[in-house]
Simulated scan of single mutants.
Amino acid sequence: MSDSSRHPRVVVITGASAGVGRATAQEFAAHGWRVGLVARGRAGLEGARADVERRGGTAMVLPADVADAEAVAQAAQTVMDRWGRIDLWINAAMATVLAPVSEITPDEFRRVTEVTYLGQVYGTQAALRHMQRQGRGTIVSIGSALAYRGIPLQAPYCAAKFATRGFLDALRAELLHENSPVRLTEIHLPAVNTPQFDWARNKMPYKAQPVPPIHHPEAIARAIYRAALEAPREVWLAGSAVQAILADAAAPALVDKVLARQAYSGQQTEEPDDDRPDNLFEPMDDQVDHGASGRFGEAARPHVSAYRPARLRAGAAAIAGLVTYGVVRTLFDLKEKDRNTRSSQR
Rank of each mutant, 00 (worst) to 15 (best):
G32Q: 06
L189A: 05
A127C: 05
S293Y: 05
P205W: 12
F167I: 10
L37F: 04
I187W: 03
R226N: 11
A76G: 07
I245V: 15
H7N: 10
A191H: 06
R233Y: 08
V115I: 14
N193S: 14
L128Q: 01
A155W: 09
V328W: 12
W199E: 03
L312F: 10
V288R: 14
E114A: 12
A316W: 05
E53P: 03
R40H: 08
V327K: 13
A314T: 09
A316C: 11
A126V: 03
T105F: 05
V61E: 04
A159G: 15
V101Y: 15
R342Q: 07
V97E: 07
A23I: 04
D81E: 14
G143S: 12
A238V: 06
V11Q: 00
M131I: 05
K257S: 12
T78D: 11
R201S: 02
R129W: 07
Y307I: 11
G36D: 00
G315K: 05
T124R: 01
Q134M: 03
A191F: 08
P156S: 14
F109H: 12
G123R: 00
L62T: 00
A292T: 02
P152D: 12
R111G: 01
Q74S: 10
V97W: 04
V101M: 15
V140F: 02
D286N: 14
Y148L: 08
D248Q: 12
R133M: 06
A71C: 10
T78I: 08
H303S: 12
S141T: 10
L128M: 04
V288L: 12
F332D: 13
A241M: 06
P100T: 15
A263W: 10
E270C: 09
Y325K: 11
A316L: 14
R339A: 13
R54M: 10
R9I: 01
T105S: 15
R226M: 13
S4P: 06
P190N: 08
S141Y: 10
I13H: 00
A173E: 13
V288W: 10
S180C: 06
E282Y: 09
S293F: 04
Y122N: 07
H215M: 09
S4T: 11
L322S: 13
M131R: 01
A317R: 13
M131D: 01
G321Q: 09
V304T: 03
V72F: 01
K337S: 07
R276N: 09
E174G: 11
R110S: 13
E46Y: 06
L171G: 06
H303P: 00
D3V: 09
P272C: 13
T341N: 04
P210S: 07
A126E: 06
Q268M: 15
R22S: 02
D87C: 03
D256G: 05
D68I: 06
L312E: 09
V182K: 00
A191M: 08
S144N: 12
E178D: 13
R22I: 02
L280P: 05
H215G: 05
A318M: 10
F162P: 07
R276V: 13
R111Q: 14
